[in-house]
Simulated scan of single mutants.
Amino acid sequence: MISLMKNNSKYWIVTDLDGTLMDEDYDITPAKKTLKILAELNIPVIPCTSKTASEVRYFRKENALTDPFIVENGAAVYGGYEQNSSEWELILGKSYFELKTILFNISKKVNYHLTPLNDLSKNQIYELTGLSDQGITRALDRCWSVPFLNPPDDIFENVKSICDFYNVHVFKGNRMSHLLSSESHKGKAVNKLKVYLQNNDVKIIALGDSQNDLPLLEYADISIVIPGKNGPNKYLQNGIDNGSFRLANAPHAEGWANSVQDIIKDFKD
């Protein structure tokens, strides 16, 4: 029996973390009241992020979240069992080591060194992310994707153009780009979780802020783009313009909270 997840839930909040629920300093303070309301309404909050399982386990513990979680841009899904502390695991794609070899081969083809996050020094990672030593250790615990430094836009387009040959794809986040199997993305991961929990009729309320959230936002029933301080990500603008995505009225946790509160106000008795 799967625990801590309401199999009969009518709605799931499926949310990106960095840049969406968190600001650049990893603060979610403006959303904490909303998270408490969601818990009272028994509406699951499912992180769906580029972060590792180690990072999300820590985040969930810090914020009293207990529902399943999707990691490494949809490459794996984890959740807990009712009677013990062990986890179940759903894997959608290739291993880190397979993907790192592919990234090396792509680098040669585009004649540009694509630098994996795990190849940087701790000082370099700190400068890029602001993470603590323990945070860096959790971030480097990669199993199913390879984050790498964002290349120039023209190089990134060249990388995208040859990904099909290797059965992989790339997404550009705010701090890093990410290479993962073509079988992996956030939308596919949510669908796999729905099937696994036998809750195919659940309505997905998705929130994201960057290109790696596009598969999630396209999959969801209600899709909300969280802008940065300078406005929404350019890769999500088309969905906003054509009415597929809603645009939150503020960046990060404030916009997240406002948007979720607006949707769930009709759920309250």
Rank of each mutant, 00 (worst) to 15 (best):
Gly231Val: 02
Lys61Thr: 11
Lys188Asn: 08
Pro251Leu: 12
Asp23Ile: 06
Ile13Trp: 02
Asn174Thr: 15
Val56His: 11
Leu128Glu: 09
Thr137Ala: 11
Asp154Trp: 09
Pro215Gln: 02
Pro47Cys: 12
Pro116Arg: 03
Leu17Ala: 01
Pro44Met: 14
Cys143Asp: 05
Asp153Met: 11
Glu82Ala: 09
Val77Glu: 07
Ala39His: 11
Ser184Cys: 03
Ser132Pro: 14
Gly93Leu: 05
Met176Gly: 14
Thr129Leu: 14
Leu90Phe: 04
Tyr196Pro: 01
Asn174His: 13
Phe59His: 02
Ala75Leu: 10
Thr15Leu: 02
Lys172Val: 13
Tyr58Gly: 04
Leu214Asp: 04
Leu180Asn: 11
Thr29Tyr: 09
Ile226Val: 15
Gly243Phe: 00
Lys51Met: 02
Phe171Cys: 11
Val45Tyr: 05
Gly19Gln: 09
Glu87Lys: 06
Ile37Cys: 10
Tyr78Gly: 09
Ser86Thr: 03
Asp133Gln: 12
Ser145Asn: 05
Asp119Lys: 13
Asn63Gly: 06
Gln124Trp: 14
Gln211Asp: 13
Val225Asn: 08
His185Leu: 04
Glu62Phe: 01
Thr101Asn: 08
Arg175Asp: 13
Asn105Tyr: 14
Pro232Glu: 06
Lys109Met: 13
Ile125Gln: 07
Lys100Asn: 06
Glu40Gln: 14
Pro227Asp: 11
Gly239Cys: 00
Thr29Asn: 09
Asn111Ile: 04
Lys6Gly: 11
Gln237Asp: 12
Gly173Val: 08
His113Cys: 07
Asn233Trp: 06
Pro215Val: 07
Phe69Ala: 10
Asn258Thr: 15
Asn73Thr: 12
Gly228Ile: 01
